[in-house]
């Protein structure tokens, strides 16, 4: 049936867990594109039929015309589904950029199509340019602050780093009392965890 595959594609984004990305469905995607092209061929051949019979496409309402109309509508529907699929995925990719930073971990990155990887790069660049422009890092401070300092445990060897008010040796499993804004990037990368009493 026309449009079924495109619908499945959209369902995939709708049923997925919020904020998570599924592997790009290359196979299905290409099949839908194929379907669009064959709709277009059918449509053109129906119009050719009508022209050969000497009928005016604008006014004639015969079987061929309605056949062509069905193909046209299926094509636009497929197009909407494809665009929705890409648009929603792009939205998730943007949210990943906010949560995980410029470079995505390998297991997420391999779920993206090559065009999506390019998009992530381009989006990251425009976001960086904007934050540079306003001279403010917007990716920290994601939750309303309760206390300016938080207790954290380091999960991986980070080494000696310079923080806004001091420098610290962030050795594995050591515990620190850090400024929230200093700790947040490490927490989001999974290198630290917040200790909640």
């Amino acid at each position: 049936m026309y449009g079924r595959k495109a619908c499945q594609l959209v369902k995939e984004t709708a049923t997925g867990e919020k904020g998570q990305i599924k592997p790009f469905n290359d196979d299905m995607f290409n099949q839908v594109i194929q379907e669009c092209c064959s709709h277009h061929l059918e449509l053109q051949s129906l119009f050719r039929n009508m022209q050969e019979e000497g009928l005016d496409i604008q006014t004639t309402r015969n079987a061929d015309f309605y056949g062509a109309l069905i193909h046209h509508l299926s094509l636009t529907r497929n197009k909407r589904c494809l665009m929705a699929y890409m648009y929603n995925r792009a939205e998730v990719i943007r949210s990943l950029r906010w949560k995980l930073g410029r470079v995505l971990p390998e297991e997420i990155s391999k779920k993206l199509s090559s065009s999506e990887k390019e998009y992530l790069k381009g989006y990251s660049a425009s976001l960086d340019a904007y934050m540079n422009d306003i001279n403010l890092d917007l990716t920290v401070d994601m939750v309303p602050p309760k206390d300016p300092y938080i207790q954290v445990r380091v999960l991986d060897d980070i080494g000696e780093v310079v923080l806004t008010d001091c420098s610290a040796n962030l050795a594995r499993y050591s515990m620190h009392f850090l400024k929230r804004t200093d700790a947040e990037p490490y927490i989001s990368q999974g290198l630290m965890e917040e200790l909640v009493s």
């Binding site: 890409m86 792009a90 199509s113 065009s115 390019e118 998009y119 989006y123």
Partner: peptide, 9 residues
């Protein structure tokens, strides 16, 4: 960026 992405894909 998004325009190019949608165009290409």
């Amino acid at each position: 960026v998004i325009g190019k992405h949608l165009d290409d894909s």
